[in-house]
Amino acid sequence: MIFETDSLKIEQVEEVKSQLLAALENEAPMITLDLLYVNKVDLCIIQLFLALQKSTQKKNIQLTLKNCSESFINTLSLSGCSDLLKCSHE
């Protein structure tokens, strides 16, 4: 799943949630969020990703965040969440 906006914030949280829910219902063994274009996120979105992580862990789905930008990773580390979410640069 790819996000095509520069910033993912509270304004988009409802929409992102419904997309993530849809991805969960697919019952695929793995969900990958492609964050190539995303530079700005806020705590609201990070919280949502963490909630997704809780869901995927329950269902034994693997969650990966790929193509994470430096600013995204920086934001994650400021919020102390970089160890919690699995990020990759590719």
């Binding site: 509270i10 949280v13 409802e14 992102v16 949630k17 993530l20 829910l21 969960l24 705590l43 609201c44 919280q47 949502l48 963490l50 909630a51 997704l52 809780k54 869901s55 329950k58 580390s77 400021l78 919020s79 102390g80 969440c81 919690l84």
Partner: peptide, 20 residues
């Protein structure tokens, strides 16, 4: 910075506008 996730629900039940 250590986030505490105990209160965080799963995606299915989360109110996205509420901080947990």
């Amino acid at each position: 910075v250590h986030p505490l996730l105990e209160k965080l629900p799963t995606l299915e039940t989360i109110d996205p506008y509420k901080p947990y």
